[in-house]
């Protein structure tokens, strides 16, 4: 039981990660794929923040007092960077989707493949 409580957050993170991966593999719609990517990214953020948490700790902002316990600030910094980079990735991906829709009139992967097979030069 102790094991389950201690590891529960990791397991949920893995379930979320796999949900994102499943969307990316099994859904043909390109916007849906990017949503899956976002799901995957956020689950990774969660994994890092979970690793930084210390029981009975407080946010890593220095306060006066004896024996204050702080959570680990390093994962927070890494994830701050990752969130911003993740949004930059999403923006480029969505711009590509808009261009694909302009050029082909569809954002479904199988239809795109069919069009591509008909006119390989396009």
């Amino acid at each position: 039981m102790n094991q389950v409580i201690g590891l529960y957050s990791y397991w949920v993170v893995i379930v979320l990660m796999m949900a994102g991966l499943y969307i990316m593999i099994a859904r043909y719609n390109l916007v849906k794929k990017i949503i899956g990517l976002g799901l995957f990214q956020t689950s990774i953020f969660y994994l890092y923040i979970t690793l930084g948490k210390v029981d009975g700790g407080t946010a890593p902002i220095l306060i006066d007092g004896e024996n204050v316990v702080y959570s680990n600030p390093l994962p927070h910094v890494l994830i701050l960077t990752a969130i911003v980079v993740g949004v930059a990735t999403t923006a480029v991906a969505l711009a590509l989707v808009v261009r694909i829709h302009e050029a082909f009139g569809t954002i479904e992967e199988d239809e795109l493949k069919a069009i591509d097979a008909l006119e390989p030069d396009a």
């Binding site: 953020f45 923040i49 210390v54 700790g57 407080t58 702080y70 959570s71 927070h76 701050l80 969130i83």
Partner: peptide, 9 residues
């Protein structure tokens, strides 16, 4: 989980 800066972002 005490990550207030991450929560803002």
């Amino acid at each position: 989980m005490d990550a207030v800066d991450v929560a803002f972002t």
